[in-house]
Design a binder for these strands. Structure first.
Length: 646
RNA sequence: GCCGAUGUAGCUCAGUUGGCCAGAGCUACUGAUUUGUAAUCAGUGGGUCGGGGGUUCGAAUCCCUCCAUCGGCUCCA
């Protein structure tokens, strides 16, 4: 007999070889129907696997993320089975579950698969699912595995088997399809009730640019049709928030082929929004002891030879500008730090001065591969809310914490509640990728981990994701379509101070090397605004809104009064304008609502006579009337409260 | 950069077996109207059908090529 401990603490005595499914059936038929897999002693396994030792057991259903993963992984197999019926000889790479659904990388040979094939594949998947074929697990020898896929002619599977250890290889079969697979899988295909293939895309075999490119088919499945419908509705909603769409509709930014791809043009309203954000952060930074500096957009090649960036990125960046007479080479600056190092070097420093914090909204230019460009989130010219902190080694952790606090202040002011802090450490297996000593790396990594812990950040650690010069802490958020983007970043750098031979004089009258911290709470203005647009669906908070108030006259007769109100508001630093058009009030309101102007003031005969305005709030409707002085006060109070981060 | 898809007026989109001067709505402009909380009416203007080349009596439509955009991959100081 073995003892099985359930999540509620209950302990069951069961014969050796009992399966999780048996246990589920013992609890309830309903549960048994919904069990997709099981987690035994922390390992996810098939519900049909016999249990042979004591342990803790959790039955996984659709409500568990691991249950979903198993469901989607099995769905990938189901799709593969369907694909094989339409594309005989098709070869398979890998087919894992992902955050939303699954994909399978396939090589269909000379019979391309396009989205036009989706319908028939989906139908076939549903047809196969209805047969409720069981997923059957089988342990095979490496030799047998080789033999099977050699006969099938699937070189990708052979490539995978090559790296597997004999004795650990398993096959899973359902219906007429057998795949090399670690598992686990759901009991049978019958629970897959709704299927939707999302897209096809190219993907390199094993993620290697030099390998053959396979066709990746993305799909998602659900145990209920209703859930698929809901998911598709959610995607539609997300599309409406896409910053590229809203950016155009709200006239925030645009691109021009003539100017060049990936080079955003900020329209007046977008520039206004951007300026509000800059002013907000500049104010906070002044309070936190930052010193504003300004540096040029280009820098001599020598600067980047010294920094080491020339060697690493020289060939893959915009090529240098040459002076006609001297033939000197200048690069568009891809980052601000080398310039700031030279500012630091402009005079000797005492340990008493540190930390020194140079801040600059610095516009930088990076050559991004053409296929990488994406709205405002991935561009070739962008402005970093950059700053470089030069401090003593004993100040690193404190400074780090202060920066975390600043980032959190910004996020709070802008109502970003969901983000994760990613700690990026170097890959210990591949230390040659990085510059700097082991000792310095360890010190820096420890400082980051401790600082993040002290501020209670929700962190994930990513090994091998560090920059080549130091570890970093990045704040990640998701866009409307669930894609993850890095916003703020804090990076420790022991490298540049070394390369630029930065120094300060210590209390011992000896020269010491400062530590540098790069940091940008927004990251880049472009990306931050992109994410902000999606975050608030274009309904910017009042204090940021490019147009805060629009005054709408009932007819042209009241335009004079409307202008009087507008002038009064503008004199109080409220961004107000008048819709002077000869349109009916309904039309003016509709247009202002579509433009997402936070406040509409409707003025007619009654208001003009009483010196009042009729207030309509965006998305909420009529709020009644008040004197325009009172309205102005209300707006200013709101703005003031928000800008201070409450 | 790679794979796949897309590209018609300022915007959103019709226009598919190649065939009269390429269409609609919104926007813009002109006029009428002077309006009370999400679209007043009428008229006018606006397009090298992404660029270039080709096939054809004839191309927005078929082919080639380049460019840009979109979805991914790879990359991201």
């Amino acid at each position: 007999m073995i003892q099985i401990t359930l999540p509620d603490g209950k302990i069951l005595e069961k014969p050796v070889g009992t399966t999780s499914m048996d246990i589920a059936k013992g609890i309830s038929e309903g549960l048994a129907r919904n069990v997709l897999a099981a987690k035994f002693n922390g390992q996810v396994i098939d519900a049909s696997r016999p249990l042979n030792s004591n342990g803790t057991l959790e039955l996984l259903t659709w409500d568990h993320s691991e249950g979903k993963s198993t469901f989607w992984h099995s769905s990938a197999h189901l799709m593969a089975e369907a694909l094989e019926t339409f594309f005989p000889g098709i070869k398979f790479g890998i087919g894992p579950p992902i955050e939303n659904g699954f994909y399978y990388d396939v090589d269909p040979g000379d019979q391309p698969i396009s989205s036009e094939d989706f319908k028939k594949i989906e139908d076939k998947m549903l047809e196969l699912a209805r047969q409720s074929s069981q997923f059957v697990r089988r342990e095979v020898s490496k030799e047998e595995a080789f033999q099977y896929f050699t006969e099938k002619g699937d070189q990708y599977k052979l490539d995978l088997i090559k790296d597997l250890q004999d004795g650990t290889i398993t096959f899973y079969s359902q219906g007429n399809f057998t795949d090399l697979c670690r598992g686990p899988h759901i009991p049978d295909t019958g629970s897959i009730k709704a299927v939707k293939l999302m897209s096809v895309a190219g993907a390199y075999w094993r993620g290697d640019e030099k390998s053959k490119q396979l066709t990746r088919i993305y799909g998602i499945t659900f145990p209920k049709q209703k859930e698929l419908t809901e998911y598709l509705t959610l995607l539609e909603e997300a599309k409406k928030r896409d910053h590229r769409k809203l950016g155009k509709e709200l006239e925030l930014f645009t691109f021009s082929e003539k100017v060049g791809m990936g080079l955003p043009l900020w329209l007046p309203k977008g520039a206004q929004l951007r300026d509000r954000l800059e002013q907000f952060l500049k104010k906070a930074q002044l309070k936190a002891g930052y010193l504003p500096v300004v540096t040029p957009h280009i820098g001599n090649k020598d600067l980047y030879v010294t920094s080491g960036h020339y060697e690493k990125y020289g060939a893959d960046s915009f090529q240098p500008i040459r002076t006609p007479a001297e033939g000197e080479e200048f690069f568009l600056k891809p980052m601000n730090c080398p310039h700031h190092c030279e500012i630091y070097k402009s005079k000797p420093h005492s340990y008493k001065e540190l930390p020194i914090r140079y801040a600059e909204f610095g516009t930088v230019y990076r050559y991004e591969q053409s296929g990488e460009l994406h709205g405002l989130t991935r561009v070739r010219g962008f402005t970093q809310d950059d700053a470089h902190l030069f401090c003593r080694p004993d100040q690193v952790k404190d400074e780090f914490i202060k920066v975390i606090d600043l980032v959190l202040f910004v996020f709070r002011a802008l109502d970003f509640k969901e983000f994760i802090a990613q700690v990026s450490l170097r890959d210990p297996e591949n230390k040659t990728k990085y510059i700097g000593t082991d000792e310095n790396w360890e010190k820096a990594e420890r400082a980051i981990v401790e600082a993040a812990a002290e501020r209670g950040l929700n962190t994930v650690v990513e090994t091998g994701e560090a920059a080549f010069y130091g570890p970093k802490l990045d704040f990640m958020v998701k866009d409307a379509l669930g894609r993850k983007w890095q916003l703020g970043t804090i990076q420790v750098d022991y490298n540049l101070p070394e390369r630029f031979e930065l120094e300060y004089t210590g209390a011992d009258n000896q020269k010491h090397r400062p530590v540098m911290i790069h940091r940008a709470p927004f990251g880049s203005m472009e990306r931050f605004i992109a994410v902000l647009i999606e975050h608030c669906a274009g309904n910017f908070p009042l204090w940021l809104s490019p147009e805060q108030v629009i005054i709408l006259g009932i007819s042209e007769k009241y335009n004079d009064y409307a202008h009087k109100v507008s002038e009064f508001l503008k004199n109080s630093d409220i961004r107000a304008s008048v819709d002077e058009r000869d349109e009916k009030i309904g039309k003016k309101i509709r247009d202002a609502e579509i433009r997402k102007v936070p406040y509409m003031l409707i003025v007619g005969e009654k208001e003009a006579a009483e010196n009042t305005v009729s207030v309509r709030k965006h998305g909420q409707g009529d709020m009644g009337s008040m004197s325009f002085e009172k309205f102005s006060e209300m707006i200013l109070d709101d703005v003031k409260a928000r800008m201070s981060g409450n």
